[in-house]
C-alpha cells in the first residue's frame, strides 16, 4: 500500500483545488474582462508606439509569467529532489507546458509587435533571444519528463534539468546581452522604455494579474489531471 501513502498529499491538494478552483476561475474571468476593456478600449494610444502599444498588454505579462514559471519549475524540482514531495513532480509536469505556452505567446506577440514598430518580424534583440532560449529550456523539460516509461524517472530527471537550467538562465541572459551589444548597432528601440505612463501602467498591471490568475488556474486544472492519471496508471499496473 505504498502507493496510497504517496497519494496522501496529492489527495489533499485535490480537495483543496476542488474548493478553490471555481472561485479562482470566476476571478480570472472577471479580471480578464476588466483588463481587456482597459487594454483595448479605455487606454489611450501611446505617443511613441501608437495603437500598437496594446500588444504590450499581453506580451509583457506573458514574458513575466514565462520567467516566473521556470522559477516555479526549479522550486518544484528542488521540492521533489530534496523533500521527495510527491505533489511537486505532478505539478511540475502540469506547469511546464503552461510556461512553454506563455513563452510562445510572448515570442509570437513580440514578433507581431516588431513588424509595425521595427519593420521586421524578428530582431536578434537580447530580450527576444533570451526568451527564445527559455522556450527551448521549457521544451527540453517537457520532452525529458515524458521520455521514460517509468514516469517517476522522468520527473526526477526533469527536476535536475530545471535546477541546472535556473542556474544557467542568468548566465545565458548575460551572454546574450553581451553578444547582442557586440553585434547589434544600438539603434533598435528597446521594449518598454525607461518610464511608463500611468495610463499604460494600469491596464498592464490588470492584464498581468489576469494572466497570473489564468496561469494558476491552468496549473491547478492540469495538476488535478496528472494526479488522476497517476492513479489510473497505478491501477493499471496493479492489475
Amino acid at each position: 500500500m505504498a502507493s496510497l501513502h504517496v497519494l496522501a498529499n496529492p489527495a489533499r491538494f485535490r480537495r483543496f483545488s476542488q474548493k478553490v478552483l471555481p472561485v479562482l476561475s470566476g476571478a480570472t474571468a472577471l479580471v480578464l474582462a476588466v483588463g481587456l476593456y482597459l487594454a483595448l478600449v479605455e487606454s489611450p494610444p501611446d505617443y511613441q508606439q501608437g495603437e500598437t502599444v496594446r500588444i504590450m498588454f499581453i506580451h509583457v505579462p506573458s514574458a513575466w509569467l514565462a520567467m516566473a514559471g521556470y522559477a516555479l519549475l526549479a522550486g518544484l524540482g528542488a521540492a521533489l529532489l530534496v523533500w521527495r514531495h510527491p505533489l511537486a513532480a505532478l505539478m511540475a509536469r502540469a506547469a511546464a507546458p503552461v510556461g512553454a505556452v506563455f513563452a510562445a505567446v510572448c515570442l509570437l506577440t513580440g514578433s507581431l509587435w516588431g513588424r509595425p514598430m521595427w519593420g521586421t518580424y524578428w530582431v536578434w534583440d537580447a530580450r527576444l533571444t533570451s526568451m527564445l532560449l527559455l522556450f527551448f529550456l521549457y521544451l527540453g523539460h517537457i520532452a525529458l519528463s515524458r521520455a521514460y516509461d517509468d514516469a517517476e524517472r522522468g520527473d526526477r530527471a526533469a527536476a535536475i534539468l530545471a535546477l541546472v537550467g535556473v542556474i544557467n538562465l542568468p548566465v545565458i541572459k548575460f551572454s546574450v546581452d553581451w553578444w547582442n551589444t557586440l553585434h547589434q548597432p544600438a539603434s533598435v528601440m528597446k521594449l518598454g522604455g525607461p518610464s511608463i505612463h500611468p495610463a499604460i501602467l494600469t491596464p498592464l498591471m490588470v492584464m498581468a494579474a489576469a494572466l497570473l490568475l489564468l496561469f494558476v488556474v491552468l496549473v491547478m486544472v492540469r495538476t488535478e489531471t496528472e494526479i488522476d492519471r497517476r492513479r489510473l496508471d497505478a491501477a493499471e499496473r496493479a492489475q
Binding site: 532560449l133 529550456l137 527540453g140 521520455a147 530527471a157 534539468l161 541546472v164 545565458i172
Partner: peptide, 17 residues
C-alpha cells in the same frame, strides 16, 4: 530514455549557448 540522442541535443544545446 526513449529518443535518447535527439533528446540529448535538445537538452544540451540551450545550455551550451
Amino acid at each position: 530514455a526513449r529518443r535518447g540522442g535527439a533528446l540529448l541535443a535538445l537538452l544540451a544545446l540551450p545550455l551550451c549557448v
